[in-house]
């Protein structure tokens, strides 16, 4: 059975797994127990590449309280496969440092928290 906690514990180990529907092949991130496309409950872990392409991005300068110390940073929607997207952030200070279509790699920073949620931080690195 897939779960969000297990998804993040795999990611904590540096591996990105989606939930793949064995009926229609749809992949979701994080995985869910019910396929949003066909409603099948036959969902298996599916290992994904740690690289993708920036589909959209924003440069956040005014951050929520829990991220204040990191600002500015860009948050990117990254297309890993057709219809399989994930989000990560990248430490840059100008919107001109990134553009739609840039190739990026996910870089995982292990959680050091001892209270919930013990999920890793998900960063991005630009590839050339």
């Amino acid at each position: 059975m897939v779960s969000i906690e297990e998804f993040y514990s795999k990611l904590n180990e540096g591996e990105l797994y989606g939930g793949k529907c064995s009926n229609c092949g749809n992949i979701t991130l994080p995985p869910r127990q019910i396929c949003p496309k066909c409603l099948s409950t036959q969902i298996d872990w599916y290992k994904l590449s740690m690289t993708g392409e920036v589909e959209s991005f924003t440069l956040i300068t005014v951050a929520p309280k829990n991220f204040e110390n990191e600002a500015p940073y860009a948050v990117c929607i990254v297309k890993i496969l057709e219809d399989v997207k994930f989000i990560g952030r990248i430490k840059i200070s100008s919107q001109n440092e990134i553009k739609v279509g840039d190739k990026v790699e996910f870089v995982i920073e292990k959680s050091i928290s001892n209270e919930w949620p013990m999920w890793p931080k998900i960063y991005l690195k630009k590839l050339n």
Partner: peptide
């Protein structure tokens, strides 16, 4: 902003440091 961000999905959007301005900015960039 932290309070508002609580209306976005904790398992993905909040976790990435998005604000609501950020979410709509992603739509705008696209």
């Amino acid at each position: 902003l932290e309070g508002l961000a609580m209306a976005s999905d904790i398992a993905i959007e909040q976790w990435s440091g998005l604000t609501f301005a950020g979410i709509f900015a992603l739509m705008a960039t696209w």
